[in-house]
Amino acid sequence: MVGKPSVALAEFDTAGEIYHACEHVRDAGFSRWDAHTPFPVHGLDKAMGIGRSRVPWIALVCGFTGAGLAFWLQAWVHSSAYPLVINAKPYMSWQAYIPVTFEVGVLFTALGTLIGMLALNRLPQHYNSLFKSARFERSTDDKFFISIAADDPRFQGEETLRFLQGLGASHVELIED
C-alpha cells in the first residue's frame, strides 16, 4: 500500500558535509526537520539553529524536591512520628540529616534527568517512518542524515529532494507513510 510522502531523507558521508548542509537547511527556513548522526557532532545544534536544552531546569527542580523531601522526612520522623532521644542528641539534629538529604537529592536529580530527557525527546517511540528506510540503519553506524518532514510548510516533495541533493547528499529518498 502506498501512502503519501511523510519525510524526505538525505544521506551524507562525513561530519563536515552534514554540518554545512545543516547550515543551508536552517537558512532556507525549514522548521520541521532534523539531523541524524551516529554520535553527537560538535556544534551541529548551532548549525541547525536550535536553542538550549531544558533538561537542566528539570534536574534542578527534581534535585531540590528530593533533598527537601528527605530533610522533611528525617525531621518529621525524629521530632514528631517517633521522638526518641538517642546518644543525647536533640530531636532536630539537622547536621546528622545532611548525608541522607544529599543522597536523596542526587537520586531525584538523576531520575528527573533521565526521565526528563526521554520525555523532551518523546521517547520511547518505537515506531517512526524513518525506520522504513534500509539506508537509515547506518545512521547509528557511520552515515549522517537530514530528514525534512512533509508537514513542514516549506516542504515541496521532489523539489525538496533536489534541494538536498544540491547540498552534497550522496543519496536522497522520499519515505511514504
Binding site: 551541529l44 536550535i50 531544558r54 526521554l118 547509528t140
Partner: peptide, 13 residues
C-alpha cells in the same frame, strides 16, 4: 527506546 540519532535528541542527551 526508538533512538534514531536525532540531533535534537542528542542535545538533550
Amino acid at each position: 527506546l526508538g533512538w534514531r540519532g536525532s540531533q535534537r535528541h542528542w542535545q538533550n542527551y
